[in-house]
Lab assay of single mutants.
Amino acid sequence: DKPLMPYMRYSRKVWDQVKASNPDLKLWEIGKIIGGMWRDLTDEEKQEYLNEYEAEKIEYNESMKAY
């Protein structure tokens, strides 16, 4: 599988927590909350997800070359 983009990594990490805090919200409403949370992160906080993505992207590209 292709590596997940940084925002999607963050979304997967916080989804269950946001859903548990807001059990009556629809999926798109939860997505909207998470989008706002992502925008509110500092560049340093986002960098963690970007670093994970870049590392996985290198691994993915290497595995595709071998294939």
Rank of each mutant, 00 (worst) to 15 (best):
E59V: 10
G36K: 15
E56T: 04
E44W: 01
S63L: 08
L25M: 09
D43G: 07
E62W: 04
K46F: 00
A20L: 07
Y10F: 14
P3N: 09
G35A: 13
M5T: 15
Y7E: 15
L41D: 01
Y67C: 14
K13S: 13
E48I: 08
W38G: 03
L27I: 11
S11Y: 13
S11H: 12
P3Y: 06
D1R: 07
K26W: 00
Y10K: 01
E44F: 04
L41P: 00
R39P: 03
D43H: 07
A20H: 08
D1G: 09
A55S: 11
I33K: 10
P23S: 04
K19W: 04
W15L: 09
D24Q: 09
E45I: 06
N51L: 10
Y60H: 05
L27N: 15
L50I: 14
D43N: 15
W28K: 11
E45A: 12
M8V: 09
W28S: 14
L4S: 11
K46H: 04
K2R: 06
E44Q: 05
I30S: 02
I34H: 03
S21V: 07
D16A: 14
R12V: 05
Y60F: 09
K65V: 07
E45D: 10
Y60D: 09
E54V: 05
Y67D: 14
E54N: 07
E48W: 04
R12S: 08
A55G: 11
D24L: 15
N61E: 15
M5K: 14
A20F: 03
D16E: 13
K13T: 14
E54C: 05
Q17G: 08
I33N: 01
D24N: 14
R9H: 10
D24K: 13
G36D: 14
W38T: 03
L27V: 13
D24G: 13
A66I: 09
S11G: 05
W15V: 09
Y53I: 07
E54F: 02
W38D: 05
E54G: 05
M37Q: 04
K2I: 02
Y53S: 10
M8G: 09
Y10A: 01
P3C: 04
Q17P: 03
S63E: 14
E62T: 08
I34R: 01
D43Y: 06
M5S: 15
M5P: 15
I33L: 09
K26G: 07
R39Y: 06
N22D: 04
Q47T: 05
N61Q: 14
K19Y: 07
E44I: 07
W28A: 07
E48M: 12
P6E: 05
Y53N: 10
E44H: 09
E29C: 01
Y60S: 13
I58H: 12
E44D: 12
P6Q: 03
N22T: 03
N22A: 05
I33A: 03
I34D: 00
M8K: 14
D24W: 13
K46A: 01
L50R: 13
P6H: 00
D1V: 04
N51I: 12
E44N: 11
D43S: 10
Y10L: 00
L27Q: 15
R39G: 07
Y10W: 04
E59N: 12
D16M: 06
D16S: 10
K2M: 06
K32E: 14
I30T: 02
L41W: 00
E44C: 05
A20K: 13
E29Q: 10
E29P: 00
D16Q: 10
Y53M: 07
N22H: 15
M37L: 03
K13A: 11
D16G: 08
S11C: 08
G31S: 14
K19A: 11
D1P: 00
I34V: 15
G35D: 15
E62F: 03
E56Q: 07
N61D: 11
K46C: 01
M8T: 12
K2E: 03
A20C: 05
T42P: 14
I34A: 01
V14I: 11
I33M: 07
K19N: 02
D43W: 09
W28R: 12
T42H: 07
K46D: 00
T42R: 09
R9W: 11
W38I: 01
N22S: 04
D1T: 06
S63K: 13
D24C: 14
Y7W: 04
I30Y: 05
Y53F: 05
K32G: 06
V14P: 00
K57C: 14
P6V: 01
Y7D: 04
L27A: 15
M5Y: 12
N61M: 10
Y49T: 03
D43I: 12
L41Q: 03
K65P: 12
V18T: 02
G31H: 15
D40I: 09
